[in-house]
Design a protein around this nucleic acid. Structure first.
Lengths: 339, 339
DNA sequence: ATTAGCACTCACAACCCAAGAGTGCTAAAA
DNA sequence: TTTTAGCACTCTTGGGTTGTGAGTGCTAAT
């Protein structure tokens, strides 16, 4: 099962050539471009072996080989050599973090944009799950007659808000309610906050119960929606550049899955992440629509919780580069979100 | 130039048939399906006239006719009959407005989703421009050590926020600053607020000047970003369903234009909207990438300002239906955003 | 003014053919 | 025993040809 050195070299050459050209690669090409000092015939023998081991596929009886999913797997696990970002690329991304750090959400959005522009793939960021974040602050503010603004600030600086209906009340009165909320809900995780609000609701029979009910409802909806809400994507059009997707049907399903956000579940549910930038290749993905694609994603810390940042592209993806760029973004995010 | 009754009938038939099938339509089909009591030969003569007038095109010398941009134009202006939404369709959309009206932004997002699911086109909503909105409220709130949360509520209930760095200060002190801001900036439009903040900045030399500078900067960025920020889209994948876009290249450019939001400028810049749901067809669009598409969009009021809601699809679009559904959404939005 | 009839055009699909790339196998060479 | 040269074979790809069908424009009859 283990690959001897020459088989490894050949497999590596095939993967990298195929990634570059998109075409099946033949014995001649391997011999010529990646001079191993042996003839095409020898390479053909090795290729036949590699195919038998399940690392290569043949699109049809008589044309070059293409890496199989398992082939890509051993490539990323054992064969590939780390890539380095070019000076200007890293500078480009760094500049992004230097300038506008208005708030967490736009930082994440900008990161996605940079990521999708720097690659030919689809980039995504998945914000932290609310379950584990805690509250720095919660406010109820007068917004207009009959309406109040509920503002919730999480420990990581993500701000959520909603307008709720309130009976007419004075500024002082609202401040009083706001204080009740703050006192009871401060520094709890969303889970806790939620049950606490319910308890508060049962006890409180005054005219404020209506308000608290609305707050509770909003908290519920925050947890429910968090999946879809905190996902940002960019570079959808990039996918259409890939030669393998000249045929619309293959992207179609993916785009739909992406739009309704079911893509995320794939990533979150999938086997626990082992390597740092985690890589899932083709069939390894749980979701059907993504079985033609690969995903490279990493994790960044955000307060108590964690977010994900990743790239989605064809299996024929430049893995070393994807890994390098994701690593870099992870670092930048961790650094700038730490303070 | 004016169309006699029969020419009108024929043009209408051709447009509607072509919208349904996507294929060029011939004289026989018109005669058979839309029984006008005349023979195909007669229809052929009329079609030749219509072509000469510029309302029809021939893909090639000897196949059926296809409506030209001008053909579609007279169709939407004079020929088409209003469509009505089916009971369940309108119910579907209405239910959306009934349930969750947490805040304006998510209402708009949901509307887009519903719109793109109800049609085969790409749906978009363009939020109100900030220039003309005024402020209901502005708050500076303690968020965590060294950071404060700036919350701005516009008259229409759109909430913006950002975190800014502040020197350590007591709760009372911050409330004082918050009051300064409120006093000076209340109920002004963003334009006014902005210059006012600058004035304030020049005068204020105390330790708060740093804060005010940050507020001013945020206000600037709000106006600048407003274009890209307040655009929501859904149903990109729908476009790939259209038979005319089996060829990737045609959608490619559009998708890119869409992603970076230059599509909006097209709509905003374009000639002043005359009809209620405005319709721009193919070449009528200012932006090159959209010249193969049609856009149907309407306006909804939001406080002092206005937003746009629309559909983007192939020229071969079901215009009556698009108009009907946009109208309906306009109504719903106006009704629910009025309070 | 309308229609039937007919010759003509053109896209499209099917088919064949040749070229080219690449393979697997066998037998010779190292 | 491993490597290599040689060769027959396979399969894709692109170009060219052909036939079919849909649809037209025109002319002559109604």
């Amino acid at each position: 099962m283990a690959l001897d050195k020459r088989k490894a070299q050949i497999l590596k050459a095939i993967v990298e050539d195929h990634v570059k050209t998109g075409l099946p690669v033949g014995s001649r090409a391997v011999a010529r471009k990646y001079r191993l000092g042996v003839s095409p015939a020898t390479i053909r023998n090795e290729m036949a072996d590699l195919e038998e081991m399940g690392y290569l596929d043949k699109p049809h009886t008589s044309s070059g080989r293409v890496p199989s999913d398992r082939g890509y797997r051993v490539y990323v696990d054992e064969l590939m050599t780390d890539a380095k970002l070019s000076r200007q690329e890293s500078a480009m991304i760094e500049s992004l973090f230097r300038s506008k750090i208005r708030d967490v959400v736009s930082l994440l959005k900008e990161t996605v944009r940079a990521l999708s522009e720097a690659t030919d793939y689809l980039a995504f960021v998945l914000g932290p799950e609310y379950e584990t974040t805690t509250f720095e602050a919660i406010y109820l503010l007068p917004a207009s007659v009959g309406r109040a603004l509920l503002v919730i600030v999480s420990d990581v600086g993500v701000v959520e808000n909603c307008l709720i209906d309130v009976p007419p009340m004075s500024r002082e009165e609202m401040e009083y309610v706001s204080n009740i909320l703050r006192e009871h809900l401060y520094n709890l995780s969303l889970d806790q906050v939620h049950s606490k609000a319910q308890a508060l609701l049962r006890r409180e029979t005054s005219r404020y119960s209506e308000i608290i009910a609305q707050v509770a409802e909003f908290l519920t909806s925050m947890t429910e929606d968090s999946e879809t809400e905190k996902l940002f994507m960019g570079g959808t059009a990039n996918l259409l550049n890939q030669p393998e997707f000249r045929d619309v049907n293959r992207v179609q399903g993916l785009l739909e899955a992406i739009e309704n956000g079911s893509l995320i579940r794939n990533i979150v549910i999938t086997q626990s992440q082992t390597t740092d930038p985690a890589i899932t290749i083709g069939q390894e993905n749980e979701v059907d629509k993504v079985k033609d694609f690969s995903i490279v994603y990493g994790t960044f810390r955000l307060g108590q919780s964690a977010g994900r940042i990743g790239l989605l592209g064809p299996k024929r993806m430049n893995y070393p580069r994807a890994v390098a760029i994701i690593r870099f973004c992870e670092q930048m995010l961790n650094k700038h979100l730490a303070r």
